[in-house]
Amino acid sequence: MSLPEFDFHAPGTVEEACRMVAGFGAKAKIFAGGTDLMLDMRRNRISPEHVISIPGIEELKTLEIASGMLTIGACVTVARVVKSKEIAAKWGALCAGAKALGSCLVRNLATIGGNVVSARPAADIPPSLMAYGASLVLKKTSGERVVSINDFFTGTGSTAMGPDEILTRILVPEPPPHSGAGYVNLGIRNACDINILNVSSYIALDGPGGAIKDARIVMGCVAPTHVRVNSAEKLLIGEKPTDALFQRAGEAALNAATPRGSAYSRASAEYKKDMVKELTVRTLAMAYREAMGR
């Protein structure tokens, strides 16, 4: 099986890339890490007339922490995120998601932006970004806009990004004191697996030993997009963290999950629902442990 024929473009700047995207429209596909795009083309799922390669654009590869904000350029590789000590220290759940993505070979090519834009419900990066309350910077020739990642995913493979837009960077606010997060993904093997289910949880405490003042729980693989579990979040806020509370939150997540679970999906609906609960409880416990430590 070989790749379809296409014209190849390697713009040197974001502006140039935006002009190309605007010009070619739906006939073009952006090549960031290529780990999804190459498979889609090889399997004939898509055959773009133009491929716009952006990993060479320096501006898209910035990784910086300044004034309480982590900025990740869209073309920062997942491997770089895994290796970043700063990210591991403050955004541990994001680091865990990055580490869970594919093999080290895949991570060396795959980009953070690509993992977000491809909008797959089993993706490893979005849940923690959502848990940390990240936002995305989308750029087009006429300017740029910032959208919350919460509002970004509209369906499997589809997002709020316009056909003339490019994701340039991801902004992740620094978690406040006494907050923590946890990410757990469940596959069949110990590594390099496509997730059966994944959950990321974030809680912020009202001081050490205090009540939960903010909570975000995100689950993947149970709906066309990653979803927040509002019912579980509500239940947590204002309460003192306990095992029993986390169990109740898990139960709420279980009830909120509506996985399809067909003969061809990676697991049955019943198993996925039970795992939503299990992983919610586990990630909340992780988040709590981290919150107590900082």
Binding site: F31, G34, T35, M38, R42, S53, C104
Partner: peptide, 27 residues
């Protein structure tokens, strides 16, 4: 495999090991 799953095509590209089936030659 041609799909980045097996690693048999690993090369070191600018110091980083990658699956060369997932990289375009022009890149």
């Amino acid at each position: 495999c041609g799909e980045g799953d097996c690693g048999a095509c690993t090369v070191i590209l600018d110091g980083t090991p990658v699956s060369s089936c997932l990289v375009l030659a022009v890149q």
